[in-house]
Write a protein that binds this DNA or RNA. Sequence first.
RNA 1: AGGCGGUUGGCUCAGUGGUAGAGCACUUCCUUGACACGGAAGGGGUCAUUGGUUCAAAUCCAAUACCGCCUACCA
Length: 919
Amino acid sequence: MSETENTPSATPELAKNYEPAAIEPKWYKTWKDAGVFHAEPDASKPAFSITIPPPNVTGSLHMGHALNNTILDAMTRWHRMRGYSALCIPGTDHAGIATQNVVERTLAKEGIKRQDLGREAFIERCWEWREQYGSRIYFQFEKLGCGYDWDRVRFTMDATYVDAIMEEFKSWYERGLIYRGTRVVNWDVKFQSAVSDIEVITEERKGKLYHFRYPFADGSGHITIATTRPETLLGDAAVAANPTDERYQPHFGKMLKLPLTEREIPLIADDYAKPEFGSGAVKVTPAHDLNDFECGVRNNLPQHIVIGKDGSMTELAGPEFVGLDRFEARKKVVAMMEELDLLEKIEDYTIQTPISDRSKEVIEPLLSEQWFVDMKPLAEPAIRVVKEGKIRFIPDRYEDIYLHWMENIRPWCISRQLWWGHRIPVWWTNEGEGGQPRHAFARSREEAVAALGTENCWQDEDVLDTWFSSALWPHAVLGWPTDNADLDYFYPTNLLSTAQEILYLWVARMIMTGLDFIKRNRETAELGTWLGSETDELVSIIPFRDVYIHATVLDEKGRRMSKSLGNGIDPIDLIDKYGADATRFSLMQQAGKNQDIKFSEQRTDIAGNFCNKLWNASRFVLMNLDDATTGALPARAEQSLADRWILSRLTATIEQVNASLATYDMDDATRAIYQFFWNDFCDWYVELAKPRLRAEGDGSERKTAQNMLAYVLETTLRLMHPVIPFITEEIWQALPHVGDTICTATYPQPVAEWVDPEAESAIGTTIDATRALRNLRQELAISPAPFLKGAAAAAGETVLATLTANRDLIASLARLSELTIATAGPAAGTGTWIGSPITGAEMFLEIGDSVDLKRELERIDKELASITKEIERSLAKLSNPNFVERANPEVVEKERAILTDWQDKQRKLAERRTLFAAN
RNA sequence: AGGCGGUUGGCUCAGUGGUAGAGCACUUCCUUGACACGGAAGGGGUCAUUGGUUCAAAUCCAAUACCGCCUACCA
């Protein structure tokens, strides 16, 4: 029969070479067109849902995304195959400052500033930008193989999403949780906006510590203070020293002449000053430092704003400084102080400098009026829900990190002085009592007029922090604030997987908003997903059950990937080079409970080799099937020992993979897959099957082998599919299978009847025997080509039976012309035999004239030396009465068996040695 | 400064009390009809250090060192 005729006509043949680019786009399109990824509420199935962390609309796929989205997709696919109505909702975040930055840069190339365009037109440009580039990352997700429900894609500025934000704002505003406040915020002088803590990076920079003298107003000497920011001197409101500091106790309350100004400032007592640092006295600038601000509030100090929003000095700084850039002002202050002989010294100093992540400008802590959210009341339930174990962190160490932050939560500044984003839905009028401004929540001018009772009103200029909108993500993407079937069925979601740096800014806030806004009837709420008391009719529902914090992907040297270092790896390049499957596999192999991943491209190369191996082994299986092969599991009676063995290995692997995925040990899951497929299936099972495929007779042995190969391979493909979706689909389609796509095929589950210690032990012996024979051949440098005579001496009946049963297999694998099995070794005079002991037997090889006596003795001695060491170790243990008496009897028994085995091998080898030494 | 991770063969990492493992790299051999992106056989580790608990420690405890991450108001 020709090869072509052997191939089942209904199934296509695999291409000779594995080329991911030739299969991946094809299957993604097929799946998408068939609606495989679309999920609807389905009462007959359990729900499984995930919302992806929405990447910035300006973003493109980086390694962190690739890792996280591989995990999300694998978890979704795994559940889909296990019969869940599995949904993964994609979307993007409008990313206020980042998008505005990108668009402003584009405009700058045309020589336009956003102020030239005006607010409306600028926002129009932002939308245009988004239309053009904002979906790029979606195509990249598709390329990675992410099976997301594209019918449900969400953007944080969609009209329905805006409804959710309005609802959130209204509720918090009306409950007084959102308030207007004046505090020191992180000010970005380039964007002229407040920025959030996460957008501030602390960098160690070299700077100077300046020691200045502040003279007492009454001329009775001076106090020395130190500062890294001399320009803030102009805004000083006091000098503080610790109340316990004896050096300053006599002077508290006295006034100091603030140099370069006309002002006098007091020396106050505040324990914010640490006596051990510098002179023990610290200048206090309430408007330009958060700690000084708090100190100022405590002591009722004035707040002089001397640095303006653009980073230049204000009028309050005095006529000599007004308009100067803050860093110019710094130089000038130092120079003038030196001139006045008030500069004591300048030291080199390492300064923890806050830098704006977006603009790379030094952040200016600045007193300004902003909108804040009072987080304390919102944090309380969010703490409880984690303490009560309703939301689980994986790895669990993040629970403490989360709780620590939540318990020390601070007000959240939500206003941003940007144009792109959700404009704050608050309207103002100055028609209040005594012309005081008043404000009210309103979604539109009409609402505002109604609420304020006047036409003379205007909307707040600021927009909301982007995180204000993403905090609503899980319920907003499911249609909240409108009650609907999706929200009912898919909420709470099952998993939130993300990077650790947004644990606070995002994860914590989603928990807070979820609990605050999503309430259900206690009777109908799913067990373990709600917070409330027995008497509450309505209870708060958690947004997700599991929070998986994935590792940070670093470069191979362990450095963060960054544009400036140029050490980043573009996942799209990896996919183009090795395929999405290899990219995913290499990421999953490294994704466990680790904090970071040192990633090198080599890992993907190795994963690609695995895919290639899978491809070729599958080709082998396929070309050995024929039309009659159904891939049905042969009856137990028809199965060979090897068949039972591979099924036993398979069910152990299935169990391991399912268990590992359930606990987010993706590294363990991929390792189990890798080892089973390569070491068990390819290295041994396929090799053991080869002679059976060539078997003569009625063809039943060949048939069984064919069905077994097809069955095991098909099952393995389903097991692998969540990790490597494309290649598994391509091969699966070529094999006998049930269903239209592997995506919706059943996920393998362990089968108790397959567990077969007897077969595992028997094939274990077969493998040992084969290895011993191959080893003899190699150690004595005998050509691998010729078929040699082999023999085995079995110590007991079990081993004798096992070896006999697998005689042909061993002979084939070890390239023997014949294999004699007996209870004793070959008789003298029957040839030149060398031997090697295995557990329960000794394997022999007839090597004719090619024996190298010296070499053989060396081999035996080497082996003996290592065995002797093992025996000594074991003897030492067993001769310790404490061990024998105290250790678990099973352990002692096991140790005795080990010793006996080593001693047995030692005796056999010694006999061999004597034999050869005599020659 | 505090908290949390890490430290296992040349490299990247598994391994939570009972004979130290994998992949890559390395050595030797092999292009035998699935695969050289492969096959076969090997070499290589006092599991960071020190102490403790235990019959038994890579594994549990304590300290130390180094690396990393995250929080933090040290001018």
